[in-house]
Structure formats: structure tokens, C-alpha cells
């Protein structure tokens, strides 16, 4: 099991409030890691520390190391480069409403680089296919990204993140705003994604974590309580808190 992300002594604050306390975890490569825990336990702060988005909030502070393939993303790396390597999908689908479906997919590449039109259009098609959206939108590629349904928009956002060819994809409750059918499609997609990249997904739904993840991290009050293979977490959790949370007794 190759380690993709090695998080060492990670602490994070909002002003005086400490949101993450001494988190140490090794996230394996090309697997799906679920992050679970009750509201306010630091799940979102944790994944936002991995693409350096936490520090953008007023009053935010971070200490510790996050090694991506051995290189500390808080070292000399430009935060913009970190975010190109570590993609993110948000809770609420957020396609760019001023761009077409096709342009949304390659938005990052288009805004950043000097790609040829032909290249962009091929990348756009390919990524729409890999998120299973191609058949649904191939006739509407010129329409605004915001014209799609919620579930389609979210897959479009995943395609947009994938088009950057990221090493890691962070997902912050990507299906919590979607209907069951769309949720099922996102789950299928997440399971497929681990062939290409490393996925870290926050979910409020413990069954979802059990269904799609290989590893599970349970957070409580800013601390990483338990991190293990998903099967172990759900069948024989070592910590009482973990057991109580996954069996629905609190949270």
C-alpha cells in the first residue's frame, strides 16, 4: 500500500478556536478514503488543509506537514500548484454559469494555459465520458453549465476536477444535495475513480462510507479518533466512540 499523502502533526485554527488537533494519518494511493464524523468535527477543515484552502478563511492558521508523494505542500510549493495537483468537488454543485458544458470541463486548463482548441475539445469529451455524462449532454455541449440538473452538474464538476489530471481528489459531501438516483451514480463514479487517482471523500452518511470506501477516518472534536480499513471500522471498531457513531447512537 503506497502512501500518497502523509499528514504529520496537523493542527488548524479559526482565530482562537482549534479545529484540528494533532492529526497524523497516511492516506494510501489509488484508494477511496472516507472521512466521517459528526458536524463540526473538523472533517471539512481537514480536507481543506490538503489543498491549502483552509488558509483563505479570515483568522485561519495551520501548522504541521502534509507530504504529497514526500514533498511538503506547506513547504516551498506554490498553493496554486498544490490545488492543481489536489482537486476538489464541493457539496453544492458549482459549475461556472458563464461557460458552456464543454468549457466547464476544461475551465481550469483554459484559464491557466495555452492549450489548442482541438486539445481542449478532446479533453472535454474524454472527461465527460469518464464521468458518464457524455451520452446525456452530447447534444447540449454549448448550453450553459448551469442548465443541467443538479446531479448532472455535480458530475460536470467532477469532470472539471478530473480534467486537471489531479493526483488526489477531495470531495466534500458531493451527493448530500442530490436525489437517490443521482447519488447512486456519484457513488459508482467514485468507486471507478480510484483506478486513476486517490479519492478522499467526506460523507455524512455512514452507509455510503461503507459502500464506497477502502479506508475510513473517523473524526471527533477535531481529533482523528480512528483510521483503518473500512471493513475493520464497520465490523470491529477499536474505539468506543467510533462504534457509537457508526451505529447511529450519536452524531
Amino acid at each position: 500500500m503506497q502512501t500518497k499523502l502523509d499528514v504529520q502533526d496537523l493542527n488548524a485554527w479559526f482565530y482562537q478556536k482549534q479545529a484540528l488537533k494533532n492529526v497524523n494519518v497516511k492516506i494510501p494511493e489509488k484508494m477511496v478514503t472516507a472521512v466521517i464524523g459528526p458536524s463540526g468535527c473538523g472533517k471539512s477543515t481537514f480536507i481543506r488543509c490538503i489543498n491549502r484552502m483552509h488558509e483563505l478563511v479570515p483568522g485561519a492558521k495551520v501548522s504541521g506537514k502534509v507530504l504529497l508523494d514526500g514533498a511538503d505542500i506547506y513547504g516551498t510549493m506554490d498553493p496554486m500548484d498544490v490545488r492543481r495537483k489536489v482537486g476538489m468537488v464541493f457539496q453544492k454543485p458549482n459549475p461556472f454559469p458563464n461557460m458552456s458544458v464543454a468549457d466547464n470541463v476544461v475551465a481550469g486548463l483554459k484559464l491557466l494555459g495555452t492549450y489548442k482548441k482541438q486539445e481542449l475539445s478532446e479533453l472535454s469529451d474524454a472527461n465527460l465520458k469518464s464521468v458518464g455524462l457524455w451520452e446525456e449532454v452530447k447534444d447540449d455541449l454549448k448550453k450553459s453549465g448551469a442548465s443541467l440538473s443538479g446531479g448532472q452538474q455535480q458530475r460536470l464538476c467532477i469532470a472539471r476536477a478530473l480534467a486537471m489530471n489531479p493526483e488526489v481528489i477531495l470531495m466534500d459531501e458531493p451527493s448530500s444535495a442530490l436525489d437517490p438516483a443521482s447519488t447512486a451514480k456519484i457513488e459508482e463514479l467514485v468507486k471507478k475513480l480510484k483506478n486513476e487517482t486517490t479519492v478522499i471523500i467526506i460523507t455524512h452518511n455512514v452507509q455510503q462510507a461503507a459502500r464506497i470506501s477502502d479506508m475510513t477516518a473517523f473524526f471527533y472534536l477535531g481529533e482523528l479518533i480512528e483510521f483503518d480499513q473500512t471493513a475493520n471500522i464497520f465490523e470491529s471498531p477499536k474505539n468506543q466512540l467510533t462504534e457509537r457513531y457508526i451505529t447511529g447512537r450519536f452524531g
Partner: peptide
């Protein structure tokens, strides 16, 4: 702000986010 965050997460610098998004 969701839209700004989408652009931030793609590693798009602020001036490009501000003008082109």
C-alpha cells in the same frame, strides 16, 4: 462564493478568477 471556491480549487490565480469568472 461557491463559484469563487470552484475557481480557487482549480488553482486559478486571483486576478484571473476575478476577471474571467
Amino acid at each position: 462564493n461557491d463559484i469563487r471556491e470552484a475557481a480557487i480549487a482549480l488553482g486559478v490565480p486571483k486576478w484571473i478568477r476575478t476577471t474571467r469568472i
